[in-house]
């Protein structure tokens, strides 16, 4: 079992989920795959289905539209899984904190469903790609 756990740290497949975001953080995720900040050398790959994912990259302040759907996607991801709340809107709701349709930042919404969820916070508006890489690698030590 130990070698399987070690190989988990060497190959993380991420699924990108955007809940009510302004799309700035989404563009930064795309930048991670470009030749300058190449994350494929760490084994990180972008997959198209939450069932294949090990890490959920959630950006955006969570909307009332998005809340049931986000929880559904979290349930469909096979555990063990890491949730990365990135961007200022994901960690706290950013400047949209008091708005009438924002239900809460990512961790407040996720704790209703699963109190033991492992969440990594990467602040920034948008966070720099170097910060994102460091955040994901720090998160790997938790699992």
């Amino acid at each position: 079992m130990n070698i399987l756990k070690k190989s988990f740290k060497k190959s993380i497949w991420v699924f990108h989920l955007s809940t009510a975001a302004c799309n700035n953080c989404d563009i930064e995720v795309l930048e991670l795959l470009t030749p300058r900040y190449d994350v494929e050398r760490f084994g990180i790959k972008l997959v198209g289905s939450p069932r294949h994912a090990d890490a959920l990259l959630v950006c955006g302040a969570v909307n009332a539209h998005a809340k049931p759907r986000f929880l559904e996607v979290y349930r469909q991801t096979p555990k063990p899984c890491l949730v990365v709340a990135f961007g200022s809107c994901g960690c706290s709701s950013g400047i949209f904190r008091d708005s009438y349709s924002i239900v809460g930042p990512v961790d407040k919404v996720l704790k209703e469903e699963d109190p033991d969820a492992k969440i990594v916070y990467i602040p920034g508006c948008p966070p720099k790609p170097e910060a994102m890489i460091e955040g994901i690698i720090k998160g790997l030590e938790v699992i």
Binding site: K67, P68, V103
Partner: peptide, 9 residues
């Protein structure tokens, strides 16, 4: 106040 049953998910 949010009533998620009404959204049908």
């Amino acid at each position: 106040d949010y009533d998620y049953e009404r959204s049908g998910i």
